[in-house]
Design a protein around this nucleic acid. Structure first.
Lengths: 189, 189
DNA sequence: AATTAATGAGTGAGTACTCACAACAGGATT
DNA sequence: AATCCTGTTGTGAGTACTCACTCATTAATT
Protein backbone atom coordinates (compact mmCIF):
# COMPACT_ATOMS: atom_id res chain seq x y z
CA UNK A 1 0.00 0.00 0.00
CA UNK A 2 1.59 3.21 -1.13
CA UNK A 3 -0.96 6.03 -0.95
CA UNK A 4 -3.96 6.02 1.34
CA UNK A 5 -7.10 7.22 -0.40
CA UNK A 6 -7.59 10.58 1.20
CA UNK A 7 -10.63 11.15 3.38
CA UNK A 8 -10.05 14.81 2.63
CA UNK A 9 -10.92 14.40 -1.06
CA UNK A 10 -13.96 12.35 -0.22
CA UNK A 11 -15.27 15.16 1.96
CA UNK A 12 -14.38 17.75 -0.67
CA UNK A 13 -16.38 15.79 -3.25
CA UNK A 14 -19.39 15.49 -0.96
CA UNK A 15 -19.26 19.19 -0.09
CA UNK A 16 -18.95 20.15 -3.74
CA UNK A 17 -21.84 17.88 -4.65
CA UNK A 18 -24.02 19.48 -1.96
CA UNK A 19 -23.11 22.99 -3.10
CA UNK A 20 -23.67 22.42 -6.79
CA UNK A 21 -26.80 20.29 -6.36
CA UNK A 22 -28.28 22.96 -4.12
CA UNK A 23 -27.89 25.42 -6.98
CA UNK A 24 -28.58 23.23 -10.02
CA UNK A 25 -30.66 20.36 -8.68
CA UNK A 26 -29.76 16.68 -8.36
CA UNK A 27 -29.09 16.57 -12.11
CA UNK A 28 -25.83 18.49 -11.68
CA UNK A 29 -23.13 16.88 -13.81
CA UNK A 30 -20.35 14.77 -12.33
CA UNK A 31 -17.90 16.92 -14.31
CA UNK A 32 -18.95 20.09 -12.46
CA UNK A 33 -18.92 18.33 -9.10
CA UNK A 34 -15.39 17.07 -9.65
CA UNK A 35 -14.25 20.50 -10.82
CA UNK A 36 -15.80 22.06 -7.70
CA UNK A 37 -13.81 19.67 -5.54
CA UNK A 38 -10.60 20.41 -7.44
CA UNK A 39 -10.09 16.90 -8.79
CA UNK A 40 -10.42 15.21 -12.18
CA UNK A 41 -13.70 13.66 -13.20
CA UNK A 42 -12.21 10.16 -13.15
CA UNK A 43 -11.22 10.65 -9.52
CA UNK A 44 -14.84 11.10 -8.52
CA UNK A 45 -15.53 7.58 -9.78
CA UNK A 46 -12.67 6.14 -7.73
CA UNK A 47 -14.44 7.36 -4.59
CA UNK A 48 -18.04 6.71 -5.75
CA UNK A 49 -18.47 3.93 -8.29
CA UNK A 50 -21.61 5.45 -9.82
CA UNK A 51 -23.59 8.64 -9.41
CA UNK A 52 -26.23 6.67 -7.50
CA UNK A 53 -23.60 5.64 -4.98
CA UNK A 54 -22.72 9.32 -4.60
CA UNK A 55 -26.37 10.22 -4.00
CA UNK A 56 -26.63 7.65 -1.22
CA UNK A 57 -23.30 8.60 0.36
CA UNK A 58 -24.32 12.26 0.27
CA UNK A 59 -27.68 11.53 1.91
CA UNK A 60 -25.92 9.66 4.70
CA UNK A 61 -23.27 12.36 5.12
CA UNK A 62 -25.80 15.20 5.34
CA UNK A 63 -28.17 13.39 7.69
CA UNK A 64 -25.37 12.48 10.07
CA UNK A 65 -24.06 16.04 9.99
CA UNK A 66 -27.51 17.33 10.87
CA UNK A 67 -27.86 14.76 13.62
CA UNK A 68 -24.53 15.77 15.13
CA UNK A 69 -25.63 19.40 15.17
CA UNK A 70 -28.93 18.50 16.85
CA UNK A 71 -27.23 16.38 19.52
CA UNK A 72 -24.94 19.23 20.50
CA UNK A 73 -27.89 21.42 21.40
CA UNK A 74 -30.19 18.84 22.90
CA UNK A 75 -29.78 19.92 26.48
CA UNK A 76 -32.22 18.34 28.87
CA UNK A 77 -35.07 20.67 29.69
CA UNK A 78 -37.58 20.18 32.45
CA UNK A 79 -40.56 21.10 30.31
CA UNK A 80 -41.52 19.30 27.13
CA UNK A 81 -42.07 22.71 25.61
CA UNK A 82 -38.46 23.65 26.29
CA UNK A 83 -37.16 20.39 24.91
CA UNK A 84 -39.03 20.71 21.65
CA UNK A 85 -38.13 24.37 21.35
CA UNK A 86 -34.44 23.50 21.71
CA UNK A 87 -34.81 20.92 18.94
CA UNK A 88 -36.62 23.47 16.77
CA UNK A 89 -33.94 26.12 17.26
CA UNK A 90 -31.11 23.71 16.58
CA UNK A 91 -32.79 22.52 13.39
CA UNK A 92 -33.44 26.02 12.10
CA UNK A 93 -29.92 27.13 12.93
CA UNK A 94 -28.36 24.18 11.12
CA UNK A 95 -30.47 24.85 8.04
CA UNK A 96 -29.63 28.54 7.98
CA UNK A 97 -25.90 28.11 8.44
CA UNK A 98 -25.64 25.11 6.10
CA UNK A 99 -28.10 26.24 3.48
CA UNK A 100 -26.73 24.22 0.59
CA UNK A 101 -26.65 21.10 2.78
CA UNK A 102 -30.23 21.78 3.78
CA UNK A 103 -31.47 22.35 0.25
CA UNK A 104 -29.75 19.29 -1.14
CA UNK A 105 -30.88 17.07 1.71
CA UNK A 106 -34.48 18.11 1.08
CA UNK A 107 -34.12 17.12 -2.55
CA UNK A 108 -32.54 13.78 -1.67
CA UNK A 109 -35.25 12.96 0.88
CA UNK A 110 -37.93 12.96 -1.83
CA UNK A 111 -35.72 11.43 -4.52
CA UNK A 112 -35.91 7.78 -5.52
CA UNK A 113 -32.14 7.76 -6.06
CA UNK A 114 -31.75 7.13 -2.34
CA UNK A 115 -32.47 3.47 -1.58
CA UNK A 116 -34.64 2.20 1.26
CA UNK A 117 -31.60 0.40 2.58
CA UNK A 118 -29.69 3.67 2.93
CA UNK A 119 -32.66 5.30 4.63
CA UNK A 120 -32.93 2.41 7.10
CA UNK A 121 -29.24 2.35 7.91
CA UNK A 122 -29.22 6.07 8.58
CA UNK A 123 -32.44 5.94 10.61
CA UNK A 124 -30.95 3.28 12.87
CA UNK A 125 -28.11 5.68 13.72
CA UNK A 126 -30.59 8.38 14.66
CA UNK A 127 -32.58 6.44 17.23
CA UNK A 128 -31.70 8.80 20.08
CA UNK A 129 -33.09 11.82 18.26
CA UNK A 130 -36.14 9.92 17.07
CA UNK A 131 -36.74 9.21 20.74
CA UNK A 132 -37.10 12.86 21.66
CA UNK A 133 -39.33 13.50 18.68
CA UNK A 134 -41.48 10.59 19.77
CA UNK A 135 -41.84 11.94 23.29
CA UNK A 136 -42.99 15.21 21.80
CA UNK A 137 -45.38 13.53 19.44
CA UNK A 138 -46.92 11.38 22.17
CA UNK A 139 -47.87 14.41 24.18
CA UNK A 140 -49.40 16.56 21.54
CA UNK A 141 -52.73 16.74 19.81
CA UNK A 142 -51.50 15.42 16.49
CA UNK A 143 -50.43 12.09 17.93
CA UNK A 144 -53.92 10.70 17.36
CA UNK A 145 -53.19 10.84 13.64
CA UNK A 146 -51.32 7.97 12.06
CA UNK A 147 -47.98 7.86 10.34
CA UNK A 148 -45.88 10.74 11.50
CA UNK A 149 -48.18 13.63 10.61
CA UNK A 150 -46.74 15.63 13.49
CA UNK A 151 -43.19 15.02 12.23
CA UNK A 152 -44.13 16.10 8.73
CA UNK A 153 -45.78 19.27 10.01
CA UNK A 154 -42.67 20.03 12.06
CA UNK A 155 -40.44 19.60 9.00
CA UNK A 156 -42.70 21.59 6.68
CA UNK A 157 -42.85 24.53 9.09
CA UNK A 158 -39.11 24.37 9.68
CA UNK A 159 -38.42 24.45 5.95
CA UNK A 160 -40.61 27.49 5.48
CA UNK A 161 -39.09 29.21 8.49
CA UNK A 162 -35.54 28.60 7.25
CA UNK A 163 -36.39 30.08 3.86
CA UNK A 164 -37.61 33.28 5.48
CA UNK A 165 -34.76 33.58 7.96
CA UNK A 166 -32.29 33.29 5.09
CA UNK A 167 -34.15 35.78 2.92
CA UNK A 168 -34.57 38.33 5.71
CA UNK A 169 -32.05 37.68 8.50
CA UNK A 170 -32.87 40.90 10.36
CA UNK A 171 -36.19 39.37 11.39
CA UNK A 172 -34.68 35.95 11.98
CA UNK A 173 -35.72 35.63 15.60
CA UNK A 174 -39.26 36.74 14.81
CA UNK A 175 -39.68 34.05 12.14
CA UNK A 176 -38.17 31.44 14.42
CA UNK A 177 -40.59 32.22 17.26
CA UNK A 178 -43.59 32.57 14.97
CA UNK A 179 -42.88 29.28 13.20
CA UNK A 180 -42.52 27.47 16.48
CA UNK A 181 -45.69 29.03 17.85
CA UNK A 182 -47.65 27.80 14.85
CA UNK A 183 -46.37 24.29 15.39
CA UNK A 184 -46.71 24.21 19.13
CA UNK A 185 -49.88 26.10 19.91
CA UNK A 186 -51.51 24.44 16.93
CA UNK A 187 -50.60 20.93 17.90
CA UNK A 188 -50.70 20.91 21.69
CA UNK A 189 -53.99 19.61 23.03
CA UNK B 1 -55.18 28.87 -43.56
CA UNK B 2 -56.06 25.24 -44.10
CA UNK B 3 -55.70 23.54 -40.72
CA UNK B 4 -56.32 25.30 -37.44
CA UNK B 5 -53.79 24.40 -34.77
CA UNK B 6 -55.89 22.42 -32.33
CA UNK B 7 -56.42 23.66 -28.77
CA UNK B 8 -57.15 20.04 -27.96
CA UNK B 9 -53.57 18.96 -28.68
CA UNK B 10 -52.21 21.87 -26.69
CA UNK B 11 -54.19 20.75 -23.64
CA UNK B 12 -53.19 17.13 -24.20
CA UNK B 13 -49.52 18.15 -24.26
CA UNK B 14 -49.87 20.20 -21.07
CA UNK B 15 -51.71 17.38 -19.31
CA UNK B 16 -49.14 14.83 -20.43
CA UNK B 17 -46.32 17.10 -19.29
CA UNK B 18 -47.93 17.49 -15.86
CA UNK B 19 -48.44 13.73 -15.52
CA UNK B 20 -44.97 12.72 -16.57
CA UNK B 21 -43.18 15.52 -14.71
CA UNK B 22 -45.07 14.60 -11.56
CA UNK B 23 -43.62 11.10 -11.84
CA UNK B 24 -40.14 11.80 -13.23
CA UNK B 25 -39.41 15.40 -12.27
CA UNK B 26 -39.05 18.46 -14.47
CA UNK B 27 -36.26 16.70 -16.38
CA UNK B 28 -38.76 14.43 -18.13
CA UNK B 29 -37.87 14.17 -21.81
CA UNK B 30 -39.83 15.95 -24.51
CA UNK B 31 -40.02 12.61 -26.34
CA UNK B 32 -41.94 10.97 -23.47
CA UNK B 33 -44.23 13.99 -23.06
CA UNK B 34 -45.12 13.95 -26.76
CA UNK B 35 -45.69 10.18 -26.65
CA UNK B 36 -47.96 10.62 -23.63
CA UNK B 37 -50.02 13.17 -25.54
CA UNK B 38 -50.24 10.88 -28.55
CA UNK B 39 -48.33 13.14 -30.95
CA UNK B 40 -44.90 13.14 -32.55
CA UNK B 41 -42.00 14.86 -30.83
CA UNK B 42 -41.77 17.48 -33.56
CA UNK B 43 -45.38 18.43 -32.93
CA UNK B 44 -44.58 19.45 -29.37
CA UNK B 45 -42.21 22.06 -30.73
CA UNK B 46 -44.88 23.50 -33.02
CA UNK B 47 -46.95 24.30 -29.93
CA UNK B 48 -44.07 25.24 -27.60
CA UNK B 49 -40.98 26.60 -29.32
CA UNK B 50 -38.62 25.41 -26.56
CA UNK B 51 -38.89 23.36 -23.41
CA UNK B 52 -38.62 26.56 -21.37
CA UNK B 53 -41.70 27.90 -23.14
CA UNK B 54 -43.48 24.69 -22.18
CA UNK B 55 -42.47 25.12 -18.53
CA UNK B 56 -43.90 28.63 -18.45
CA UNK B 57 -47.11 27.69 -20.27
CA UNK B 58 -47.56 24.76 -17.91
CA UNK B 59 -47.06 26.96 -14.84
CA UNK B 60 -49.69 29.37 -16.12
CA UNK B 61 -52.10 26.58 -17.06
CA UNK B 62 -51.86 24.87 -13.66
CA UNK B 63 -52.13 28.08 -11.63
CA UNK B 64 -55.21 29.22 -13.51
CA UNK B 65 -56.78 25.78 -13.15
CA UNK B 66 -56.19 25.94 -9.39
CA UNK B 67 -57.56 29.47 -9.23
CA UNK B 68 -60.74 28.44 -11.06
CA UNK B 69 -61.27 25.61 -8.57
CA UNK B 70 -60.78 27.97 -5.63
CA UNK B 71 -63.21 30.54 -7.01
CA UNK B 72 -65.96 27.95 -7.34
CA UNK B 73 -65.85 27.23 -3.62
CA UNK B 74 -65.24 30.71 -2.31
CA UNK B 75 -68.71 31.28 -0.95
CA UNK B 76 -69.04 34.34 1.22
CA UNK B 77 -68.97 33.44 4.89
CA UNK B 78 -69.87 35.72 7.75
CA UNK B 79 -66.89 34.74 9.85
CA UNK B 80 -63.29 35.13 8.76
CA UNK B 81 -62.68 31.67 10.17
CA UNK B 82 -65.31 30.23 7.84
CA UNK B 83 -63.89 32.05 4.85
CA UNK B 84 -60.37 30.83 5.40
CA UNK B 85 -61.59 27.32 6.15
CA UNK B 86 -63.46 27.25 2.83
CA UNK B 87 -60.28 28.33 1.05
CA UNK B 88 -58.30 25.65 2.87
CA UNK B 89 -60.78 22.90 1.98
CA UNK B 90 -60.94 23.93 -1.65
CA UNK B 91 -57.16 23.98 -1.89
CA UNK B 92 -56.74 20.56 -0.29
CA UNK B 93 -59.48 19.06 -2.45
CA UNK B 94 -57.94 20.40 -5.64
CA UNK B 95 -54.54 18.98 -4.69
CA UNK B 96 -55.93 15.58 -3.81
CA UNK B 97 -58.03 15.18 -6.94
CA UNK B 98 -55.39 16.64 -9.27
CA UNK B 99 -52.34 15.15 -7.66
CA UNK B 100 -50.06 15.24 -10.69
CA UNK B 101 -51.02 18.88 -11.32
CA UNK B 102 -50.30 19.65 -7.70
CA UNK B 103 -46.93 17.89 -7.65
CA UNK B 104 -45.76 19.46 -10.88
CA UNK B 105 -46.91 22.92 -9.88
CA UNK B 106 -44.93 22.66 -6.65
CA UNK B 107 -41.83 21.81 -8.64
CA UNK B 108 -42.39 24.66 -11.06
CA UNK B 109 -42.92 27.16 -8.26
CA UNK B 110 -39.38 26.64 -6.96
CA UNK B 111 -37.82 26.19 -10.39
CA UNK B 112 -35.85 28.92 -12.13
CA UNK B 113 -37.25 27.75 -15.47
CA UNK B 114 -40.32 29.87 -14.78
CA UNK B 115 -39.54 33.53 -15.47
CA UNK B 116 -40.47 36.41 -13.21
CA UNK B 117 -42.53 37.79 -16.06
CA UNK B 118 -44.69 34.67 -16.15
CA UNK B 119 -45.11 34.78 -12.39
CA UNK B 120 -46.19 38.42 -12.52
CA UNK B 121 -48.64 37.91 -15.35
CA UNK B 122 -50.26 35.02 -13.55
CA UNK B 123 -50.34 36.85 -10.22
CA UNK B 124 -52.18 39.77 -11.82
CA UNK B 125 -54.93 37.37 -12.89
CA UNK B 126 -55.28 36.11 -9.34
CA UNK B 127 -55.90 39.42 -7.64
CA UNK B 128 -59.38 38.44 -6.40
CA UNK B 129 -58.03 35.41 -4.54
CA UNK B 130 -55.04 37.30 -3.23
CA UNK B 131 -57.59 39.72 -1.79
CA UNK B 132 -59.20 37.09 0.42
CA UNK B 133 -55.81 35.80 1.50
CA UNK B 134 -54.86 39.35 2.41
CA UNK B 135 -57.98 39.86 4.52
CA UNK B 136 -57.08 36.70 6.38
CA UNK B 137 -53.48 37.72 6.80
CA UNK B 138 -54.41 41.18 8.10
CA UNK B 139 -56.41 39.69 10.91
CA UNK B 140 -54.03 37.08 12.15
CA UNK B 141 -50.98 37.04 14.33
CA UNK B 142 -48.52 36.41 11.52
CA UNK B 143 -49.35 39.62 9.73
CA UNK B 144 -46.74 41.47 11.76
CA UNK B 145 -44.11 39.53 9.86
CA UNK B 146 -42.94 40.77 6.48
CA UNK B 147 -43.19 39.22 3.09
CA UNK B 148 -45.99 36.69 3.06
CA UNK B 149 -44.83 34.43 5.88
CA UNK B 150 -48.48 33.60 6.60
CA UNK B 151 -49.04 32.62 2.96
CA UNK B 152 -46.00 30.40 2.95
CA UNK B 153 -47.06 28.69 6.18
CA UNK B 154 -50.48 28.09 4.68
CA UNK B 155 -48.98 26.52 1.57
CA UNK B 156 -46.49 24.40 3.48
CA UNK B 157 -49.17 22.99 5.76
CA UNK B 158 -51.49 22.39 2.82
CA UNK B 159 -48.77 20.48 0.96
CA UNK B 160 -48.11 18.26 3.92
CA UNK B 161 -51.83 17.71 4.50
CA UNK B 162 -52.41 16.75 0.86
CA UNK B 163 -49.59 14.21 1.00
CA UNK B 164 -51.17 12.50 3.98
CA UNK B 165 -54.73 12.59 2.65
CA UNK B 166 -53.52 10.90 -0.55
CA UNK B 167 -51.48 8.31 1.32
CA UNK B 168 -54.27 7.46 3.78
CA UNK B 169 -57.64 8.61 2.40
CA UNK B 170 -59.64 6.89 5.16
CA UNK B 171 -58.42 9.54 7.59
CA UNK B 172 -58.72 12.31 5.05
CA UNK B 173 -61.10 14.48 7.04
CA UNK B 174 -58.98 14.11 10.17
CA UNK B 175 -55.85 15.34 8.39
CA UNK B 176 -57.76 18.18 6.82
CA UNK B 177 -59.10 19.41 10.17
CA UNK B 178 -55.83 18.89 11.98
CA UNK B 179 -53.84 20.74 9.32
CA UNK B 180 -56.21 23.65 9.40
CA UNK B 181 -56.17 23.77 13.18
CA UNK B 182 -52.39 24.01 13.20
CA UNK B 183 -52.53 26.91 10.79
CA UNK B 184 -55.42 28.72 12.38
CA UNK B 185 -54.99 28.28 16.11
CA UNK B 186 -51.28 28.84 15.65
CA UNK B 187 -51.58 32.04 13.70
CA UNK B 188 -54.65 33.72 15.14
CA UNK B 189 -53.77 36.27 17.78
C1' DA C 1 -54.07 23.16 -56.02
C1' DA C 2 -52.60 25.68 -52.33
C1' DT C 3 -51.47 26.03 -47.80
C1' DT C 4 -50.50 24.72 -43.47
C1' DA C 5 -50.16 21.00 -39.71
C1' DA C 6 -47.90 16.78 -38.45
C1' DT C 7 -44.19 13.68 -38.65
C1' DG C 8 -39.85 11.26 -37.07
C1' DA C 9 -35.12 10.26 -38.54
C1' DG C 10 -31.27 13.20 -38.03
C1' DT C 11 -27.96 16.64 -35.54
C1' DG C 12 -24.91 18.43 -32.25
C1' DA C 13 -24.29 19.21 -27.47
C1' DG C 14 -24.03 17.14 -23.11
C1' DT C 15 -24.24 13.05 -20.01
C1' DA C 16 -22.28 9.19 -16.94
C1' DC C 17 -18.74 6.31 -17.02
C1' DT C 18 -14.03 3.89 -18.70
C1' DC C 19 -9.32 2.89 -19.29
C1' DA C 20 -4.58 3.28 -20.61
C1' DC C 21 -1.32 5.81 -18.65
C1' DA C 22 1.31 9.20 -15.55
C1' DA C 23 2.53 10.35 -10.79
C1' DC C 24 3.69 9.02 -6.59
C1' DA C 25 5.08 6.88 -1.89
C1' DG C 26 7.16 3.62 0.46
C1' DG C 27 10.34 -0.84 1.03
C1' DA C 28 14.04 -3.67 -0.78
C1' DT C 29 18.49 -4.01 -3.11
C1' DT C 30 22.60 -2.31 -4.33
C1' DA D 1 22.34 7.36 -0.11
C1' DA D 2 20.93 6.31 -4.68
C1' DT D 3 18.44 3.11 -7.44
C1' DC D 4 14.90 0.17 -8.83
C1' DC D 5 10.39 -2.26 -7.78
C1' DT D 6 5.62 -2.58 -6.67
C1' DG D 7 1.16 -1.36 -5.93
C1' DT D 8 -1.92 2.25 -5.54
C1' DT D 9 -3.99 6.90 -6.66
C1' DG D 10 -4.95 10.50 -9.95
C1' DT D 11 -5.84 11.82 -14.71
C1' DG D 12 -8.54 13.35 -18.85
C1' DA D 13 -9.37 12.12 -23.59
C1' DG D 14 -12.42 8.73 -25.31
C1' DT D 15 -17.08 5.96 -25.59
C1' DA D 16 -21.77 4.98 -25.86
C1' DC D 17 -25.87 7.05 -24.93
C1' DT D 18 -29.65 10.53 -24.18
C1' DC D 19 -31.29 14.98 -24.71
C1' DA D 20 -33.58 19.20 -26.87
C1' DC D 21 -34.35 20.70 -31.10
C1' DT D 22 -34.54 20.78 -36.69
C1' DC D 23 -36.18 20.13 -41.28
C1' DA D 24 -37.33 17.74 -45.51
C1' DT D 25 -41.19 15.16 -46.32
C1' DT D 26 -45.99 13.61 -45.95
C1' DA D 27 -50.95 14.17 -44.62
C1' DA D 28 -54.97 16.82 -44.24
C1' DT D 29 -58.14 20.40 -45.18
C1' DT D 30 -60.43 23.92 -48.04
Amino acid sequence: MALPRSEEKRIALLASAADIMAAQGLGASTASIARGAGVAEGTLFRYFATKDVLYNALYTHLKLDLAAALRQHMAVHDSLDGQVRALWDAYIDWGVSNLSFFKTLNQLVVSDKVTDETRCTVASQLSDIKCVAQACSDNNGLSALPGGFADAVFMALAETTIQFVVRDPANGQAYKSAGFRVFWSGSVR
